[in-house]
Design a protein around this nucleic acid. Structure first.
Ligand SMILES: [Zn+2]
Ligand SMILES: [Zn+2]
Ligand SMILES: [Zn+2]
Ligand SMILES: [Zn+2]
Lengths: 121, 121
DNA sequence: ATGGAAATGAAAATCATTTTCATTTGTGAT
DNA sequence: ATCACAAATGAAAATGATTTTCATTTCCAT
């Protein structure tokens, strides 16, 4: 378990809170920071483990990372431009709990994501 | 634009309506069908273009395809033994639609999965 | 049968991500 | 300050899915 290099997080912030590992790396290079691609990957993974950033997938499968408030929430993602809206889980929070109980599952978590075309696309 | 090889679609059906290109390919090989991996990829792409199949991403980024007509459902997965129960989306279905409309999104799909420990674990 | 278009697939290329491993850096004890 | 050891780093190689190339085969209309 490696700890995240703080410059990676700060770069992700500066990127507008939305970038792939490769983009964070290129950004740091352009700004003259000396860092290896491997460290960027490791740092982002560590931030994901610590739930400081979220990871989603672009349409082409590349993983993109974004700063994420700690409150539990879900995402509405444009599958064309990648624009993301954070939304409340609403009814599905209860749905997950009920379904789990109904089948005798404990310690449950859930994922839920909506994807489509945003109004601009 | 190539046309889809019908054996690919039939294999995807047989796979239970949820498989990656590599899995479809391996399945066809195992059953003695002669086909190239390239053709499997091309056929699946073509089926996606024609909206006959849906494409999503696994957590590891691999693309998975499923028949659109398949009854839509979700999964309750044991994170210890992997046991899976198919469940109805219930409240989620409406939630996704409402959230999408609220933010002006069109052509929306969604993913939702519950994971926890099953009664045996 | 003939010519051209579409389909096929083996092999190479691409590209994100992971793994390996040798080196550097940081920390704490003496 | 010195030594010892653990953690962090990064270059290079490996991995693995997907795409591209391109030569060959299959189809189809004339
Ligand atoms: Zn968009
Ligand atoms: Zn939720
Ligand atoms: Zn279990
Ligand atoms: Zn659903």
């Amino acid at each position: 378990m490696s700890r995240s290099n703080p410059r990676v997080l700060s770069t992700l912030e500066r990127a507008g809170g939305f970038a792939s590992a490769q983009e964070v790396y290129r950004l740091m290079q352009r700004e003259g920071e000396s860092i290896g691609l491997t460290t960027v990957y490791r740092s982002l993974q560590s931030l994901v483990n610590d739930k400081i950033v979220d990871v989603l997938r672009r349409d082409d499968g590349e993983a993109i990372y974004r700063l994420c408030g700690d409150a539990h929430h879900h995402h509405l993602v444009c599958k064309n431009c990648g624009d993301t809206v954070e939304i409340e889980g609403g009814a599905i929070e209860k749905w997950a709990k009920v379904m789990a109980e109904e089948h005798g599952f404990r310690e449950v978590g859930h994922t839920a994501e909506i994807f489509g075309l945003c109004s601009k696309c």
